[in-house]
Each structure stands twice: as structure tokens, then as C-alpha cells.
Design a protein around this nucleic acid. Structure first.
Length: 848
RNA sequence: GCGGGCGUGAUGGAAUGGUAGACAUAUCAGACUUAAAAUCUGAAGGGCGUACGCCCGUGUGGGUUCGAGUCCCACCGCCCGCACCA
């Protein structure tokens, strides 16, 4: 008897796969292709259990597809640009580039022992010059196609770090790193014209049948289509050129309830007034404090400033409304101006109450409702209401009908037109950062903004930078910034902004199809491998990354970098849950929590006997000390155990709790299977036994169940079936031939999850070649049904008995047998059955 | 506020409208052992009963159905996404 030694087994089989290049993806016409992709990692330096779960799921799919005769592409790379590298360089010295490549090396070393079926020859990092140089080429093509442009935009500006911050990087109005109060600042930035594709990106969501409905819905909300009316108020006493104020509303049916007009502090009219009047300038300055985040806006007090300007109501020119500058109106949504209807909008209601403006209802719950409102009346648009100030259509109609008829009425009377607007804004890609892809343009005094020549690409990041001073080191670089204008050749300056790291991850999936090409993609390769058949990653990327990638695929198709039909690059998407762990906590003398590592806690106690408080499972986090390092698990139990565990217990889309006992159990089970293989291998080869047929039937049922499980992402259920079949095999008294067939099939069914153990069993039983490339077992339909079935018998829907009958028995015969059953007769107690329902192979229900 | 999801033993969770609780953890009992660990075997939703068995049971209340964890309606609770969006 030998022992299960994963460390030895796993190294051996990984070497064998590598030697035979079984995972190398090569274009071939004789097999269907299958592209499996997991969202590539940021090279933080350590892999964590979440990575293990994500890549194991992808690996199960990839290995299963390999076994079912597909030509599989399963690549891996690194999302390697970004702020952590700069922060690390600033905190501990060193260079972002060195830090990043060291981390990539470390993480690759930690990942390889997992035995993933990855074609490592396709590996790249987004910070490789070869990658971002091609990204620059894409940028130039996008620029030429009008998919990128420059404009002024309001951004979060950190005055200490001297950089733009993303909304996610602003906490309570302060820069997350510097702690400085964030300012709103207007800068000239590069934008992708994603909003031109709003309609398309929205409509195409319906075709993504194999995406989670949740993700599609989140994208739908994010794109945010709305239909409304755009029209203008004519002004009184306004500065020249502002005799009209354009507004947009989704509730034109409330037009008669308008009691004021509000404009954004960034509205052109506000800007004119700001220059002319000190009080307006002071108010606008006040509004500009604080960031642009939802959070900052949410907490800010609603402020208004009466400009003294008046506008005429379009329906009644004698009716004048005041024009306020208000801090809650955004310049980049709609027209940057609104009309306020306090009766039907809570925010307007509060504003009107604060500034003593009239509250005029245009619809009410019913004809006899009181017109004096104590709060805004905001019913669902689908609710039927009574229009007391309706101007279009019936007095009784729903909000939706009211809106439609109002738009029709206004259009017919020359007051504005119906307009569709989207919430989705253009994607600002400029970052005042060093560790990113340089934007390949040059600023020339004579020629303006000039795109670099493709021949001059890549525009490589300089290595010799000084990160000890805040701000973008590219701005201060002595020689890098200075260059010659690609157009006139005179001295000019490079753009020093780099691209948002989301750009890097928006096309990596396409680059994997030709990772070493000297063009961004190669048509034949992209045509062969695209689309990604199965994409797997976290729900946290439901909106931005996936939306940007969808846009990029379209942009790359337009610019000739992807073939037709790749507009939606991910055929199927799966969002997997996290790996969680309990938190162990005690309190110090001041009652503050002190966290303890799982390995320091035994039976709810510390080594010194102190009881710990156990906080329910939560995302693994260093600060809570509830992190389990995959490396430790692999060295203690092997990769197969780690892989088996993260797939078992919980459905893949849900979180799975890591427990020491669960990991232990996974290891014990794999040991049992290994011992079982050993035992069967030692059997007399001519040994006959009993129950061969039953064992093989159970085996075919298991093939069927596990295959279904893998195909439907029911990995936990598939594993449960494998446990059950292992128990059956363990107890079987079948002969050698049947047992050998059973253990080899078991190994095959386990091979996507525990590939190393599976290979070893295969080899041990004398299997031909590698189990990894052996064809997937097929369930014999004939073997799935047994000769007899046990049917439960219900009386009035309650289970009372069961009968065992031949599987092919007719309905009539089954009825007869059911009614003859002693337990049934007893329950019936002489009552005559009214009806008998026989569901063949399933159940019998007797109704009295 | 808008939108979505989820509520099943002590725990994680199974269950094409057809025997609720598969499989696993934790628990208990037994075998092996001087003993423990490991391993193996078995028990186990709650209640009543010696037993055959009976009653109750998938958040709560109703409905559809021969039959509901599953479908429909309402409510309660939890979780997630979006949101001064005009």
C-alpha cells in the first residue's frame, strides 16, 4: 500500500503536461474551437483564494472542453498598470516597473502549482511595451475614426497629490491617499465617444442570453435611457445671447406646475453672471467645493441663488418664473437646466419650501383630493391619476399616458420636441499618472494637438522618473516630454497624461488571439478564436469593465481590428462568488477589536485559553486577519484539494466559506479515492464478483449527472454526485474488470477538478496516454434506466407507500399494483378512488 | 426613492411542479486500539408511539394544482446594484 502524496504527484503531472504541450492553443480547422477566459488578475504579488476559485472554475470548463474534442484557448495575463505600483514605489522606494514585474514573477510562481490548463506561451502584461504600444496604435486609429476626442470636463482634483482622482478614490470629500479636500476642477481631457453607442449597447443586451440577468439589468440602468421633452423658456432681463434657456424634462405633463427654473453653476448663463456679479461668483465658488461623487452631492445641502432673471411660461407668457442657480443641477446631464415642479418632486418641494416658491399640483389621486400638498405627490408612472391641470388627453390617465400626450401636444404646438436621452456619459480616459499607457499625441505651438506617427510607436515610458514629489513625473521629466512635432518638425511637447487602466483591460481578450503580433490583432486569428465562449469573473466588473469591453469591441470592428460578429465579445458570462472566512476577534482594554489569525485559534480559543468572538463569514481581508493563503493549503494538502474544496459545498455564483474542516475533508476524500485505486489495482485480474451491472449502471448515471453539472455550472452538485459514486464503488463487490472501469471513469469525471490525482489513477490502472487528452466518457442511455423502479404512492398528495415494479410496466398495470398495496388499502379504508394519476417512472397519486 | 435577488436541519447547501433535506461539515453511537489519533460502520428535521405507524414541517398568510420549496398574490426579514438624472 502506498500513500497519497500530492506534492510529488502534482509536480510530476505538471511536468508531463508541459512536456507534451497539451494546453498549447493552435488554430486548426478540424476541431471546433472553444475560448475560455477568466478575468485576468492585477499583479498584487500574492494570489488569494478568490483567484484559486476563479481560475479553477475556468479550468474545469477548459479541461472539460478539451476532453469533449474542442480546440481550447485558455490564456492568462496581467492587468499590470495602475496606482498601487506607484504608491508602493512612493511608500517603500523602488520603481513601479520593477515592483510590478517582480510581483508578476511571484504570482506566476504561486499560480503554476495549481496545475491550470493554461497556454503560458500567450502570457503578457498590459505594461509590456509590446502590448501598450499596440494600444497606442489602436488609440490613433480610434482618433482618426472620431471615436476619441478632447473636451473640457469637471473632475475631482486632489490639490496635494496634484492629480485627478476617480470617483471611487474620493472618500467623504477627501482624497483617499492625501486626505486633502477634493476640488472640482475643469481640465481638458481625452474622451471615448461611448455615448454615441448608447442605444446599440442597450439594445444588444437583449441578445446576451447567456449573461446573468442581473448584469444585463445593471448595464441597462447604467446606460439609463429616458424619453422626455426638450424645450426653451424665453428670458426677461438676461444677458445678451441668453434670451432662451433650454430645459429637458421626463415629466412634461407637470409643465403647468412649474414654479421656478434652475440652472447648473456650470451653465453658460451662470458663467456670464459669475463674471459680472460678485454675489454670483461667491455662490458658484461655494458650489464648486466638494467632489463630483454621488456621496458628496448627496450630503451637500441644497442651495439656490435667485439671479433676478425671469422667464416666461411657454403656455402663458404673462406667467413669470424666477431663475435660480442651484448646486444640485448637473451641467452634463440634459441641458444643465431644469424647471422645478415642487408638487411632484420631493427635491423641488424642499427647494420651494426653503425659498418660498409656489407649489402647484397638476395631478391628484382623485377628483375630490385636496390641492394643498404637505409633501410632494409622486405616484408610480403606471398609476392612474386625475389631471387637475392637464393640457393634453383625458383628465384620468396614467403618468405614462400623460407624458406621451404632453409630448405630442407640445410638438403639435411648437413647444419643443420629444427627445431620448441617456445617462451614460463619454468615458474620460486621461489620468495624470506615470504608471499607465502614454497617450500618443504631441502638443505643438504651431499645429496644435498632433497625433504621433505610427512609425514612432511605441511611445515608451521613461524609466528614470522621480516619484518622490507629488504630481505626474512625466510632466517634470527633463527629456521625455520634449520632442519634435510629427507634423512640422518644430520643438513640441508630448502629452503627459496616461490612459485609464480600464483601457488596458478593454481589449486584452482580443490580443490573446495573437499575443505577439506587431499589429494589435491579426484578423485570421481573431476570426478563428473570437468570441470568448465562456468568460468568468467577479460581479464587481458587471458595469465598467464589461461595458467598456463591449464598446471597445465595436470600436475595434469599426477600425478594422476585429471581424464582424465580435461586437459582443463574450458569448457567455459567469459571475462567481467570493471565498469567505469567519473572523476571530477579542477586545483590548478599551473595548477595541483585536483580530486573530485562523491558525492561532483552536476550538474557539487562543493558545492561552482566551475565548474568541466568532464573527460570521466575510470577504477575506488582511486587516481582519481572516485570510487563508492558497500557498499554505497547497503545501499542506496539494492543489487538487484546494481546487476540490473551492468548487464543493456552495454553488459557484454564491460565496463559499473556507473552513479548515472542509479543506481537511476534501483531502481525506481524495486520499480515499487514491486508496481505492490502489486497492483495485491490487485485485486479482481474473476476479469475478457480484453486482457488476449495478456498479456500471451507477457509473453511467454518474457520468450523466457530472456532465450535466459541469455544463450548467453546477460544480457543487457534480461533486456531490462524485462523492456518492465513490461510496458506491467503495462498497461494491463487483469483479475486477467492472471495478477498473468504474475507477477509471471516476478519475475521468474528476479530472477537470482534480487533474493531477486523475492522471495518477489513470496511469496506475494502465490507461492509454494522458487522461487530460482522453475523450470524455459518454453515458449510455440504455444504462441509465434500470429494469425495475420504485414508485412512491401518494393518497391525496401524501406519501403512503411505495411499490417496486418493472420499469416498462403499463400505466394500467401500475394502477392495479398501487391499489393492491396493503398500505394503500389501509389508508383508503374502503373509500373508492376518484382518480389515479400515474407519472411513469416518477410517482403515483391516488385521489379519493 | 428606483431596480433586482434571496429566505430549506446546528451549518454550507440538494431537489426538470412528482418520496423535502442529496452531498459535505459539526454532533452522537459502535468497530479497531492498552489508549488516543487515523480509519471503517451506523444514527440523526420536530413531536407522539414499544412497534407497524401517525401528525407537523422549506420566513408569514392566502391562491392555482391530483400534487407546491418550486408557479401566482400580499406581507415580513436579509442582501446587492443604481440614484439631486430633471
Amino acid at each position: 500500500m502506498t500513500r497519497y502524496t500530492p506534492a510529488e504527484i502534482e509536480a510530476r503531472w505538471q511536468a508531463a503536461w508541459s512536456r507534451d504541450e497539451v494546453f498549447k492553443a493552435v488554430r486548426s480547422a478540424d476541431k471546433p474551437k472553444y475560448y475560455v477566459l477568466e478575468m485576468f488578475p492585477y499583479p498584487s504579488g500574492r494570489i488569494h483564494m478568490g483567484h484559486v476559485r476563479n481560475y479553477t472554475m475556468g479550468d474545469v470548463i477548459a479541461r472539460y472542453r478539451l476532453a469533449t474534442g474542442h480546440n481550447v484557448l485558455h490564456p492568462m495575463g496581467w492587468d499590470a498598470f495602475g496606482m498601487p505600483a506607484e504608491n508602493a514605489a512612493m511608500a517603500i522606494g523602488g520603481h513601479p516597473k520593477d515592483w510590478t514585474y517582480d510581483n508578476i514573477r511571484d504570482m506566476r510562481d504561486q499560480m503554476k502549482p495549481l496545475g491550470l490548463s493554461i497556454d503560458w506561451s500567450r502570457e503578457f502584461a498590459t505594461c509590456d511595451v509590446a502590448y501598450y504600444g499596440q494600444q497606442q496604435a489602436l488609440f490613433l486609429d480610434f482618433l482618426e475614426a472620431g471615436l476619441v476626442y478632447r473636451k473640457n470636463a469637471v473632475v475631482n482634483w486632489d490639490p496635494v497629490d496634484m492629480t485627478v482622482l476617480a470617483n471611487e478614490q474620493v472618500e467623504q470629500g477627501r482624497g483617499w491617499r492625501s486626505g486633502a479636500l477634493v476640488e472640482r476642477r475643469e481640465l481638458t481631457q481625452w474622451f471615448f465617444k461611448i455615448s454615441d453607442h448608447s442605444e446599440e449597447l442597450l439594445d444588444a443586451l437583449d441578445r446576451l442570453e447567456n449573461w446573468p440577468a442581473k448584469v444585463r439589468l445593471m448595464q441597462e440602468n447604467w446606460i439609463g435611457k429616458s424619453r422626455g421633452l426638450q424645450f426653451a423658456f424665453s428670458t426677461i432681463d438676461a444677458p445678451d445671447g441668453h434670451d432662451r434657456i433650454e430645459v429637458y424634462t421626463t415629466r412634461p405633463d407637470t409643465l403647468l406646475g412649474a414654479s421656478f427654473v434652475g440652472i447648473s453653476p456650470d451653465h453658460p448663463l451662470a458663467k456670464v453672471l459669475e463674471r459680472e456679479r460678485e454675489d454670483v461668483a461667491a455662490f458658484c465658488a461655494e458650489c464648486r467645493k466638494g467632489g463630483t461623487t454621488e456621496e458628496a452631492i448627496e450630503t451637500a445641502e441644497k442651495l439656490g441663488f435667485d439671479t433676478g432673471i425671469r422667464v416666461r411660461h411657454p403656455f402663458d407668457t404673462a406667467h413669470e418664473l424666477p431663475v435660480y442657480i442651484a448646486n444640485f443641477i448637473l451641467m452634463d446631464y440634459g441641458t444643465g437646466a431644469i424647471f422645478g415642479c415642487p408638487a411632484h418632486d420631493q427635491r423641488d418641494f424642499e427647494f420651494a419650501t426653503k425659498y418660498g416658491l409656489p407649489i402647484i399640483a397638476t395631478y391628484l389621486p382623485s377628483e375630490d383630493s385636496d390641492e394643498t400638498l404637505t409633501e410632494a405627490y409622486v405616484p408610480a408612472k403606471t398609476e392612474n391619476v386625475f389631471y387637475n391641470r392637464g393640457f393634453a388627453g383625458e383628465p384620468h390617465q396614467t403618468g405614462l399616458e400623460g407624458i406621451d400626450t404632453a409630448i405630442d401636444f407640445c410638438e403639435a404646438n411648437g413647444i419643443g420636441q420629444g427627445v431620448t436621452k441617456f445617462r451614460l456619459r463619454d468615458w474620460g480616459l486621461s489620468r495624470q499618472r506615470y504608471w499607465g499607457c502614454p497617450i500618443p499625441v504631441v502638443h505643438c505651438d504651431a499645429c496644435g494637438v498632433v497625433p504621433e506617427k505610427k512609425d514612432n510607436l511605441p511611445i515608451e515610458l521613461p524609466y528614470d522618473v522621480d516619484l518622490s514629489v507629488p504630481g505626474n513625473p512625466l510632466d517634470r521629466h527633463p527629456t521625455w516630454r520634449d520632442t519634435a512635432c510629427p507634423s512640422c518638425g518644430k520643438p513640441a511637447q508630448r502629452e503627459t497624461d496616461t490612459m485609464d487602466t480600464f483601457v488596458d483591460s478593454s481589449w486584452y481578450f482580443a490580443r490573446f488571439t495573437a499575443p505577439h503580433a506587431d499589429t494589435p490583432t491579426v484578423m485570421e486569428d481573431a476570426a478563428y478564436w473570437m468570441n470568448v465562449d465562456q468568460y468568468i469573473g467577479g460581479i464587481e466588473h458587471a458595469i465598467l469593465h464589461l461595458l467598456y469591453s463591449r464598446f471597445f469591441a465595436r470600436a475595434m470592428r469599426i477600425t478594422g481590428h476585429l471581424p464582424q460578429g465580435t461586437e459582443e465579445p463574450f458569448d457567455a458570462l459567469f459571475t462567481q462568488g467570493m471565498v469567505t472566512h469567519e473572523i476571530y476577534q477579542t477586545r483590548d482594554d478599551r473595548g477595541r477589536p483585536v483580530y486573530h489569525l485562523p491558525e492561532d485559534v483552536t476550538d474557539g480559543k487562543l493558545a492561552d485559553g482566551t475565548e474568541v468572538e466568532i464573527i460570521p463569514s466575510a470577504k477575506m481581508s488582511k486587516s481582519k486577519k481572516n485570510v487563508v493563503d492558497p500557498i499554505n493549503i497547497i503545501s499542506a494538502y496539494g492543489a487538487d484539494t484546494a481546487r476540490w474544496f473551492v468548487l464543493s459545498d456552495s454553488p459557484p455564483e454564491r460565496d463559499v466559506e473556507w473552513t479548515a474542516s472542509g479543506a481537511e475533508a476534501a483531502f481525506k476524500h481524495l486520499t480515499r479515492v487514491w486508496n481505492l485505486c490502489d486497492r483495485i489495482g491490487a485485485m486479482d485480474k481474473r476476479a469475478q464478483g457480484t453486482g457488476d451491472a449495478e456498479l456500471l449502471r451507477a457509473m453511467h448515471v454518474c457520468i450523466h449527472d457530472v456532465t450535466m453539472g459541469i455544463e450548467s455550472f453546477g460544480f457543487n452538485a457534480a461533486i456531490a454526485k462524485l462523492y456518492a459514486f465513490t461510496a458506491t464503488l467503495q462498497k461494491s463487490k463487483a469483479g475486477y474488470a467492472a471495478q477498473r472501469e468504474a475507477i477509471m471513469t471516476l478519475a475521468q469525471l474528476m479530472s477537470p477538478m482534480t487533474p493531477h490525482l486523475a492522471e495518477d489513477i489513470w496511469a496506475h490502472q494502465g490507461g492509454e496516454g494522458l487522461i487530460t487528452t482522453a475523450p470524455w466518457p459518454k453515458a449510455d442511455e440504455a444504462m441509465l434506466v434500470s429494469d425495475t423502479v420504485t414508485l412512491p404512492i401518494q393518497v391525496n398528495g401524501k406519501r403512503r407507500a411505495e411499490i417496486t415494479v418493472p420499469a416498462d410496466m403499463s400505466k394500467e398495470e401500475v394502477e392495479k399494483a398501487a391499489l393492491a398495496d396493503q398500505a394503500v388499502l389501509r389508508t383508503l379504508d374502503g373509500a373508492a378512488p376518484k382518480k389515479i394519476i400515474v407519472v411513469p417512472g416518477r410517482i403515483v397519486n391516488v385521489v379519493v
